[in-house]
């Protein structure tokens, strides 16, 4: 996966075209087959819009067999900063939406994903999954979003408390979102890994900036389109693509990020994230060796990873 400076031949959609132009296709379909496919430029997703990366650079995404699938944006530090500004701006409004409303919006995401099942399956297949694996992953991903939609107005009840203090006060504690969360998504499982970390963060009222899998980014690009059409306010989820090695330190050092979730197994990267977190006492959450297809990869404790407990006191009296 090398950075290229000139446009490569994108075989994915053009391979059949080339073949047909050369007269190698089956004669039957010659009329439709000669049509040149419209190639998609995968852009990043910031503040509800789809800009190109500020870096003006891209990388070529290859299928496991080496075939070039797409050009992906190589996001820069500037892109991250723009995304954090958008996420911070969106935070207050998103956090203060009613839990019921956030649940409905997550449910809407699941609906839109269901609409795009075929697209997600084909993307996962292109990036190396078998059709069966791809279908299982898409099913799991949609169900996971639905699962967290259901938690939107329940986790607070599980994790809050009314505290029987000795003095004459009413005292209660409840979870609140920690703020802007940066997420290094799992490298494997380009779809279920992605939604498994985004859904618990946003259902809890956080906004996030996410770096998609480098080797499996196609679903992230499509997931951004899902978000864009799912009533999720702009800035709540910002999705970047690019090289982890270039962006990891920015994702973990930015001073207006409150928590960083890191989802891979590289011990040096884990240490770097945890070290950088100390700059502004970020909450550093590490998910390593997680099987994102498994039942253990979900639960309200994933929501609590990016929650703060707020305790409020008030006197009881006249």
């Amino acid at each position: 996966m090398k950075e290229k400076t000139e446009t490569p031949v994108l075989k994915k959609k053009s391979v059949t075209v080339t073949a047909h132009v050369n007269g190698n296709g089956n004669g039957n379909g010659a009329k439709t087959d000669s049509r040149l496919a419209v190639l998609k430029t995968h852009k990043i997703y910031i503040d509800g819009k789809f800009p190109r990366t500020e870096s003006g650079r891209y990388y070529v995404l290859n299928a496991p067999n080496g075939e070039a699938l797409a050009n992906m944006c190589l996001s820069s530090r500037k892109d991250l900063r723009e995304a954090v500004v958008a996420a911070r701006k969106a935070f207050g409004g998103w956090a203060s939406k009613s839990a019921y409303n956030r649940g409905q919006i997550l449910y809407r995401i699941a609906e839109m994903m269901e609409d795009r099942r075929a697209q997600f399956i084909s993307e996962l297949t292109e990036m190396g999954s078998t059709p069966k694996e791809a279908e299982a992953e898409v099913n799991c991903a949609i169900d996971r979003v639905l699962y967290y939609a259901g938690w939107s107005d329940k986790y607070q009840q599980i994790f809050s408390s009314v505290n029987p203090v000795e003095s004459s006060h009413f005292n209660f504690s409840l979870p609140e979102p920690t703020g802007v969360v940066s997420i290094i998504a799992p490298e494997e499982n380009g779809l279920v890994g992605l939604v498994s970390v985004i859904a618990p963060a946003i259902v809890g009222g956080n906004t996030c900036v996410v770096l998609a899998s480098k080797t499996k980014p196609l679903c992230a690009s499509s997931f951004a389109e899902v978000l864009n059409s799912s009533d999720v306010p702009g800035g709540v989820v910002n999705l970047l693509t690019g090289y982890r090695e270039e962006l990891l330190s920015h994702f973990s050092t930015h001073m207006d990020i409150n928590a960083t979730i890191y989802c891979n197994n590289n011990v040096e990267e884990i240490k770097a994230v945890q070290t950088n977190a100390a700059l502004n006492v970020k909450r550093a959450v590490v998910h390593n060796n997680t099987n994102w297809m498994g039942e253990d990869a979900q639960g309200p404790y994933y929501i609590m990873d990016t929650q703060e407990i707020k305790t409020t006191w008030h006197p009881v009296g006249i």
């Binding site: 408390s161 505290n163 029987p164 203090v165 000795e166 003095s167 006060h169 005292n171 504690s173 407990i309 707020k310 305790t311 409020t312 006191w313 008030h314 006197p315």
Partner: peptide, 14 residues
């Protein structure tokens, strides 16, 4: 957050 009070502490209170 203390509302109409301040600097109260209790073992049951996070």
């Amino acid at each position: 957050i203390w509302a109409n009070t301040y600097n109260k502490f209790d073992p049951t209170s996070p």
